[in-house]
Design a protein around this nucleic acid. Structure first.
Lengths: 148, 148
DNA sequence: CGGTATCCGTTCTGATACTG
DNA sequence: CAGTATCAGAACGGATACCG
């Protein structure tokens, strides 16, 4: 293994719910995992894998076909991370052609709402962002050389 | 500039709100920006910058001190991206010691709820994930050589 | 003060090849 | 089928130096 398999969770003391947005708490330097978990959850492949698994249990190759932009390597890595985080359960059936199934754990399933709100926001503001982007780029295009 | 300054927004046709979770829609290959926007929003530095700006308008150097793990380069890059996406407004005061202020745009402010739910989920499941991680790691430790 | 430009090591990722 | 191992290229991110 070579991927980001950062061990030693280093449980940080719960800071309590009353302080809204203790920003420094998200930071990696604090030894907390908020940031780290966020990265996993917001990760491109993780998000897609979870989304598909939200529908039903899937085999490795099924996921591969469904996500399809993904390489075998990244699918394996992603699935392993999700399994390690307890978001996905991996079941191996010791049959002649190996059969491995992946499904969301209860905790994994609770991500639905959260992810949904993120995607909703993004979809809802897609146009507005595109407009902002176009405007910004054209402002830059005045000073800088237009590519085409 | 060298950073991910992917131009040409390529506005993709709105697929409509009735279909819940059209997964392929998030994918980068579709030419849509959902994935891309998500990356921005979930980005470590973006998240921190937005969180601080949620409190009040800040100057460049103030942000730098507040985030503090960040390099000048990354702060600039992050702020520029957020500005381009229309999430942050940059105001330059042409005074002798240059003064530049950053503040959230109305759209940027709407991120609050979304980000909050993400962070809430993460904080709420931090312990459970840590436990899952520890368990997974120990399971691996049996088969693989314990480091220490 | 608030950047920009450059260099450069680290990380991420995809392609490829091999295995139980 | 479902991986693992290896390698190379691309992207990321920090340190540094210089500018309006």
């Amino acid at each position: 293994m070579e991927e980001g398999t950062l061990k030693s969770p280093s449980n940080c003391g719960d800071t309590g719910p009353e302080q809204d947005f203790d920003i420094n708490n998200w930071d990696v330097r604090e030894g907390c995992e908020v940031r780290q978990i966020l990265d996993r959850v917001a990760d491109k492949w993780s998000l897609l894998a979870i989304a598909h698994l939200e529908r039903r249990t899937l085999r490795f190759s099924e996921l591969r076909r469904l996500i399809d932009g993904i390489s075998q390597r990244m699918l394996t890595v992603t699935l392993r991370q999700l399994e390690r985080d307890g978001l996905v359960r991996r079941t191996v059936y010791p049959v002649v052609p190996p059969r491995v199934e992946y499904e969301l754990t209860p905790m994994g399933a609770t991500l639905h709402t959260t992810i949904r709100s993120l995607v909703d926001w993004t979809e809802g503001h897609q146009q507005e962002i595109a407009r902002a982007r176009a405007e910004y780029d054209s402002r830059q295009g005045e000073a800088d050389a237009p590519v085409a």
